[in-house]
Simulated assay, not measured.
Amino acid sequence: MKLPFQIDLKGRVAVVTGAGGVLCSELAGALAHSGAAVALLDLNGEAAEAAAAKLREQGCQAIGIAADVLSRASLEAAAEQVKQVLGPCDLLLNGAGGNHPKGTTTKEWLEPNDLDDPELTTFFDLDPKGVEFVFNLNFLGTLLPTQIFAKQMLGRPHASIINISSMNAFCPLTKIPAYSGAKAAVSNFTQWLAVHFSRVGIRVNALAPGFFLTQQNHKLLIDEATGDYTARAHKIIAHTPMQRFGKTEELIGTLLWLVCDDASSFVNGVVVPIDGG
């Protein structure tokens, strides 16, 4: 893996949730190639272990663990495994999150006759359970791992937590009120937690990615029949000054800056936009 710059994380243990996905497996790799021993956690244990196996093939120390970020028991079991195999957690990257169709409207705007069309999901049709799932996955899926793993960080030097928010937290995207609101909660929680942990030596910051192509949004942005961008994708790019989607590796520099005490020891409670303008 090519890193934008080198930092030294030797002797540090990093835990990454959502690490079976495109973005977080890449971020886990950046931490591993910087010398950290990395535990990759994901609901899909096979995906987590596959990503960890690739890192081990590259000479890194990494393990994959099946873990549900909405289950305290699952997280406690994962934390014990991390402690036994790698040691106590020093760095936590809360990457698990996502959206759900039941928290999404069909159209961007409500128009007068929409309520008469049974094919549409309007704001009034949003399923409370779907909205609840999105909030739980993004917000509780950040809070619960922090409760479990931050206990291992207490009293350890250079402890750091990085959350994954979204540019939706700054500027809500149309059609996805549940996801936008949930990520706003993650940003708010990041600021709250930075103050709360400020006297026990744990810094808390967040990345706010704009649009990056991932497994979760592939159908939204790429037409499966043609392989071209969808109308939604073209609209997003038209509103992005740099006129393109982000590349996964473009998140790495900000992550390494935030976890490196030599570079950011007085940076706490920030949510950094990475969105092409």
Score class of each variant (00 low, 15 high):
2 K>P: 15
3 L>Q: 14
4 P>N: 07
4 P>D: 06
4 P>K: 05
7 I>N: 07
8 D>Q: 00
8 D>L: 00
8 D>K: 00
9 L>V: 03
9 L>F: 03
9 L>I: 03
10 K>D: 06
11 G>F: 00
11 G>M: 01
11 G>Y: 00
12 R>D: 03
14 A>E: 08
14 A>Y: 02
14 A>T: 04
15 V>C: 02
15 V>A: 01
15 V>D: 05
15 V>R: 03
15 V>L: 04
18 G>M: 04
18 G>N: 05
19 A>T: 03
19 A>C: 06
20 G>F: 06
20 G>T: 08
20 G>S: 10
21 G>Q: 06
23 L>A: 01
25 S>T: 07
25 S>P: 13
27 L>Q: 12
27 L>S: 04
27 L>Y: 04
27 L>D: 08
28 A>C: 07
28 A>E: 12
28 A>F: 06
28 A>R: 07
29 G>S: 15
29 G>Y: 10
30 A>I: 10
30 A>E: 13
30 A>S: 14
30 A>N: 12
31 L>K: 05
32 A>V: 09
32 A>Y: 11
33 H>I: 01
33 H>S: 07
33 H>Y: 09
33 H>K: 10
34 S>Q: 12
35 G>A: 02
35 G>N: 02
36 A>M: 09
36 A>S: 09
36 A>D: 12
36 A>K: 06
36 A>V: 06
37 A>F: 00
37 A>K: 15
37 A>V: 01
37 A>M: 11
38 V>I: 08
38 V>N: 06
38 V>E: 09
39 A>C: 10
39 A>K: 05
40 L>W: 11
40 L>H: 07
40 L>Y: 08
41 L>H: 12
41 L>K: 11
43 L>H: 07
44 N>W: 06
45 G>I: 13
45 G>M: 14
46 E>D: 15
46 E>Y: 01
46 E>G: 07
46 E>I: 04
46 E>V: 11
47 A>Q: 14
47 A>C: 04
48 A>L: 12
48 A>T: 11
50 A>Q: 15
51 A>Q: 12
53 A>V: 10
53 A>L: 15
54 K>S: 14
54 K>F: 00
54 K>D: 15
55 L>S: 07
55 L>P: 12
56 R>F: 10
57 E>D: 15
57 E>Y: 00
58 Q>I: 02
58 Q>C: 06
58 Q>R: 14
58 Q>V: 02
59 G>A: 07
59 G>E: 13
60 C>E: 14
60 C>V: 08
61 Q>I: 11
62 A>C: 08
62 A>E: 10
62 A>R: 07
63 I>C: 06
63 I>M: 13
64 G>S: 07
64 G>F: 06
65 I>C: 11
65 I>G: 08
66 A>M: 10
67 A>I: 08
67 A>C: 05
67 A>Q: 07
67 A>P: 12
70 L>I: 00
70 L>G: 00
71 S>M: 01
71 S>D: 12
72 R>A: 04
72 R>Q: 11
73 A>Y: 00
74 S>N: 04
74 S>H: 03
76 E>Q: 14
76 E>V: 08
76 E>F: 00
76 E>N: 04
77 A>K: 15
77 A>E: 15
77 A>N: 14
77 A>W: 05
78 A>T: 11
78 A>F: 06
